[in-house]
Computed example of a mutant assay.
Amino acid sequence: MHPSLLLPFLILMIFALGINVPLGYMREASPKYSLSWFIYIHLSIPFIVALRTSAGFGWEVVPFSLGCAVAGQLLGGFLRRASRRS
């Protein structure tokens, strides 16, 4: 990766992770496979794609942004479960 693309790449990864933490938190409270559950999982995708394409990245960064999005969902769900335990 060219050094000039490192900062936009990191911004994209942080965005993919960060936007999915609150969505994962809300998803955890929704009934599994409900409409709201589905929406919370997929709502960030158009925004991540828009940021990815506006930064000039192609398909090669999709696995990384998808991994960060999944990590954000899992972290948000974990935080929701942890807040209910205390």
Score class of each variant (00 low, 15 high):
Arg52Gly: 09
Gly24Phe: 10
Val62Lys: 13
Ile41Met: 10
Ser83Val: 04
Phe64Tyr: 15
Tyr33Thr: 15
Ala50Thr: 02
Arg85Gln: 03
Phe38Asp: 06
Met13Thr: 03
Gly58Ile: 04
Leu5Ile: 02
Gly67Ser: 08
Lys32Asp: 13
Cys68Ile: 06
Val70Cys: 04
Ala29Val: 12
Leu74Val: 08
Val62Asp: 14
Ser36Phe: 04
Leu10Asp: 05
Arg80Glu: 04
Arg85Ala: 08
Ala71Glu: 13
Ser34Ala: 01
Leu66Ala: 14
Pro31Ser: 02
Leu74Arg: 02
Ile41Pro: 00
Leu17Ala: 09
Cys68Ala: 14
Leu12Ala: 06
Tyr33Gly: 01
Met1Asp: 10
Pro22Glu: 03
Ile11Trp: 00
Ala69His: 06
Ser83Asn: 05
Leu10Lys: 06
Pro31Lys: 14
Leu5Cys: 10
Arg52Asp: 06
Arg81Phe: 03
Ala71Gln: 06
Gly72Asn: 01
Ser4Lys: 12
Ser44Lys: 03
Asn20Gln: 03
Val21Ile: 15
Ile45Pro: 04
Gln73Cys: 01
Leu10Trp: 08
Leu5Glu: 12
Gly18Leu: 01
Phe38Ser: 10
Thr53His: 12
Tyr25Val: 01
Gly24Asn: 04
Phe57Pro: 07
Phe64Val: 10
Leu5Ser: 11
Leu79Ile: 01
Pro46Asp: 05
Gly67Ala: 13
Pro31His: 08
Ser36Val: 08
Ile48Val: 14
Ile19Gly: 00
Val62Ala: 14
Pro22Ala: 13
Ser83Ile: 09
Phe64Ser: 15
Ser36Pro: 10
Gly77Val: 00
Gln73Glu: 05
Leu43Glu: 11
Pro63Lys: 09
Gly72Asp: 09
Leu35Arg: 14
Val62Pro: 13
Gly76Asn: 03
Ser65Gln: 15
Tyr33Phe: 15
Tyr40His: 12
